[in-house]
Design a protein around this nucleic acid. Structure first.
Lengths: 342, 342
DNA sequence: ATAGGTCGGTAAAACGTTTTATCGAATTGT
DNA sequence: ACAATTCGATAAAACGTTTTACCGACCTAT
């Protein structure tokens, strides 16, 4: 609780520059409708710089009823996927003079209560919803707030403002990559059939098969969820039930791939000689797996960036934002994929 | 840019309850020096609840010159270690009615500029510095701001308010664990000799050796930094130079352990039969390694929690905080450790 | 000469709280 | 019965901006 030396306020600047507060305010904010002599403008900006004047956000916020802050609500902050989204969002916010207020949804909490808190108590200017939990209740809660928001990494019925990556295209690319290597039987460990991303990736998987002229075989798709143990269980099931055994595997997340790899190792199935594996969303984990995992890299950080910056655009101009999909996708080749047999 | 329906203000509550604004304010904030009839108090709180009154933070902040926000500055947000610290800090902040404003230090940025921005522009009430970059310039910049701050996961000369985990004790435990398994030659892949945590862990390594009655052999300590490739390089060096070969290894981070494991695998050194490995700081990566890595688990989330809550205490009461070390440490046994030879 | 226009600003209200100082009514002490 | 005290409030200033409305001086065209 230091004494906190007073920072310069607008009246100090005005006095020192010999002008009114209004002049300072309008010059500092670059108000275009304000005509002023160049000399005066320079005097004001010089004095402001010298006094290190920073407008008091509380006073400004009180007057303008804007907080120049955005709230981002995330589950599992320790999941690198969300961390990357946050990094992007923070960068966009900082560039535009906004600050990012982070709210972590702990397991017990209602997500709607978090939205409510950010909007009503913190008075954020907009909400970045980085993973909607329950589409039904989440979206209707958001709409009831009558406050700008953007969905990131999710789409929802009736919500136009969203930013997603190309889950479907990325999945298709993954399958195409495997097919190009010569694989004919390509399995898929999928996520939850209720989750947007998983649905898209499953569709992309089918797209990829079709484009490669391969038949879709339901026996080659097993639901694995998002955890390592889910991946392991799904892999075991796949080894038991799919005959002939697939020669390649598209896993819907890194953790699922890791779980599958553990099971394969124990079963004596060699990677990539006996089974090629590719995972979705690149990350540090891919590097430490044995062998290092080939992945499809997606622009998660840019997704966060675009979400925040389009939200700010909307807040400032009131413009309509139609939603965006970031398409640049890249296969990161590591050691877990090869032609069938080696 | 929705029309944003007006939220209730204090005057609305006052009018509806038939009292003055002052009464509402003092009742809502639980001002103990305010005497009021129980009936009136209830009427006020009831009306406030009914109108869903939330005090406007800008107005309050303007008046009180407090923002009820904390800034946390982190590097590498996608490093799970920092993510956990943030989770803890956010929880503490939320419990105390503070919000957490996150600033990510990108590679090009001066950390001091971030401190300055958070304090001067955002007017946070306190700063959580989750990893000081350069002790010299960072600390003097922080002190110059004359603003409450806390260092987390770092100590620095002349700074009393810090929260750390027991790096040294954890390292000692790791070595003790290996010694208990029967290992006599225990190597250490260390971090940078300039970094607080690495220094502590190296000390702990020596403590552990000493307690087990083992001699310290400089040839068994190799600097590995913090990356996988650093771990790999260090491991190669160790295999070349240390004869007889150590039977166990204490790696200062998970990524370093992963790099080392890759090299060992290629060299035909079996884990744990030929080499036991233990890593510092638990995390998802430990599970996906092959074999899964035994680690020492540290209370990173609690560290973040304590940092934020002690900072808030200091802000509110002006109390002195002497610094804290969180001691609870736990070995998470997985498959990378065993008695020498199997 | 004077009406109108442009230039270069200013005065002051308003934003929604918190808090200091004050005040009337009820109670108590003498 | 009257002063003093306590109880239960209230009025109003202040916080630092932004912004609306206005103003005086100077030019310019009739």
């Amino acid at each position: 609780m230091k004494p906190k030396r007073q920072s310069a306020k607008i009246s100090d600047v005005a006095k020192a520059a010999g002008v009114s507060q209004a002049a300072v305010s309008r010059v500092m904010r670059g108000d275009a409708s304000f005509v002023v002599r160049e000399e005066t403008r320079k005097r004001i900006t010089d004095v402001a710089r010298e006094l290190n004047y920073q407008p008091n956000p509380a006073a400004r916020g009180l007057r303008t009823s804007r907080s120049l802050s955005l709230g981002i609500v995330v589950p599992e902050l320790d999941n690198p996927i969300h961390a990357k989204i946050i990094i992007g969002a923070e960068r966009a916010a900082a560039e535009r003079g906004y600050s990012l207020l982070i709210a972590h949804r702990d397991d017990g909490m209602e997500e709607t209560a978090i939205y409510e808190r950010l909007v009503h108590r913190n008075r954020v200017d907009g909400l970045i919803v980085a993973t909607l939990q329950d589409e039904q209740v989440g979206v209707s809660a958001l709409k009831e707030l009558e406050h700008p928001f953007v969905l990131v990494n999710r789409k929802a019925r009736g919500v136009e403002h969203h930013v997603v990556i190309n889950d479907r295209g990325g999945a298709k690319r993954a399958v195409a990559y495997l097919a190009t290597l010569g694989h004919q039987r390509i399995a898929h460990l999928s996520g939850s059939p209720a989750r947007y991303n998983s649905i898209c990736r499953l569709e992309g998987y089918r797209d990829g098969l079709q484009e490669a002229g391969l038949d879709f075989d339901p026996a080659l798709v097993v639901e694995a969820g998002y955890t390592m143990s889910g991946g392991a269980a799904a892999m075991r099931k796949l080894l038991d039930s799919a005959h002939p055994r697939p020669t390649a595997l598209f896993a819907s997340t890194l953790m699922v791939a890791a779980g599958a790899m553990g099971v394969l190792r124990e079963a004596g199935v060699r990677i990539p000689q006996d089974m090629s594996i590719i995972g979705f969303n690149d990350g540090a984990i891919a590097d430490v797996l044995a062998p290092p995992l080939t992945t499809v890299r997606t622009p998660l950080e840019n997704m966060g960036y675009l979400a925040a910056s389009s939200l700010i655009n909307h807040i400032q101009d009131g413009g309509h934002f139609a939603g965006a999909m970031l398409k640049d996708i890249e296969i990161v080749e590591r050691k877990s994929t090869s032609a069938p047999g080696g």
